[in-house]
């Protein structure tokens, strides 16, 4: 079960992103998209705490006993993260698949942000404005 505070944070970011998307200034809309993608990424990753809370890095000869360095110590956030399926399976890792998905999503959002930004820049260059309503009027 997710921490209620985490859920609240994600929800607030969604609200802020939506508010920005409804703005008339293209740059603000792009910032809103950025906030929304952050919110989505965090939401998806947080659902990965499904049947375990350990970092999905397998124990091996270098790091015994499952500890993989001080920052990623599995005891760090004990308590606030609790698996949904308590001991439902023998796996006690955080779901690695959602992390892989979000990793892809982060990189792709970089690509789209860059593209959209250049688009906004070119629109400004051609039409001399970043106001969506004004652009709509210019396009007819």
């Amino acid at each position: 079960m997710n921490s209620t505070f985490l859920s609240l944070t994600i929800a607030l970011l969604f609200g802020i992103g939506t508010f920005l998307i409804l703005r008339r200034d293209i740059v603000k809309v792009i910032i809103g998209l950025g906030i929304l993608s952050h919110a989505v990424n965090v939401l998806i990753v947080s659902t990965g705490i499904f049947d375990g809370t350990r970092v999905p890095i397998l124990p091996g000869s270098h790091n015994d006993a499952g500890t993989t360095g001080s920052v990623f110590n599995d005891n760090l956030a004990e308590g606030i993260l609790s698996p949904v399926v308590q001991a439902g399976t023998h796996m006690d890792y955080v779901d690695p698949l959602v992390q892989a998905l979000v990793l892809t999503a982060i990189v792709i959002s970089l690509a789209t942000t860059a593209f959209i930004l250049i688009l906004a820049y070119r629109i400004h260059e051609e039409y001399g404005t970043t106001d969506i309503r004004e652009l709509r009027r210019l396009w007819g």
């Binding site: 993260l81 982060i106 970089l110």
Partner: peptide, 24 residues
């Protein structure tokens, strides 16, 4: 992301965020 047990994501996010800030 670190607290959500996603070290790879944390690293990627730092790099991507730096890049997109520069582009912005």
């Amino acid at each position: 992301f670190i607290y959500l047990k996603a070290p790879d994501l944390a690293l990627t996010q730092i790099l991507v965020e730096t890049l997109s800030t520069i582009i912005f």
